[in-house]
């Protein structure tokens, strides 16, 4: 089953919409609450990344009894050095974003921590794609 959500850049009030919607679905599918929590936390970080850095993005979630595959694609500035972006505490967030309590440099590291597999690819000036895989068995 596939779910799709649009995310618009800059609108922090809407960040969390997709993660809450996915959470609702996973609860109905009797996925273990602990696994739901990891997925939702990782996805929320992903949503915030799009809102904080990109112009717009799409989230697609593919659910099967074996695994949950999430792809977050955005149109945005891209990440020049992915290894650096994966470093805890490293952040390129604007002062305005930090002011709102985001941009602590925990986004990607926290996503990695909460997923079984994390793939990040990016083209500077075009955008970033993040894939999150959570195995259910």
């Amino acid at each position: 089953m596939e779910l799709k959500y649009e995310v618009s850049g800059g609108d922090f009030t809407k960040a969390g919409y997709a993660s809450s919607a996915v959470k609702k679905v996973l609860k109905k599918l009797s996925v273990d609450p602990k696994i739901i929590k990891r997925i939702v936390v990782a996805l929320y970080e992903g949503e915030v990344n799009v809102v904080a850095h990109a112009y717009k993005g799409t989230i697609s979630v593919d659910i099967s009894p074996e695994r949950i595959f999430i792809r977050i694609e955005d149109e945005g500035p891209g990440i020049p050095d992915i290894d650096l972006a994966m470093t805890v505490g490293y952040s390129t967030a604007s002062p305005a974003v930090r002011e709102m309590g985001f941009g602590a440099g925990m986004g990607l590291p926290n996503m990695k921590k909460n997923a079984d597999e994390l793939n990040v690819s990016s083209k500077v000036g075009q955008g970033t794609t993040v894939e999150l895989i959570t195995n259910l068995n």
Binding site: K28, L29, S30, V31
Partner: peptide, 10 residues
Amino acid sequence: ALDQDMGKAL
């Protein structure tokens, strides 16, 4: 949950 079995719930 719609079903205790995830495949069925899906």
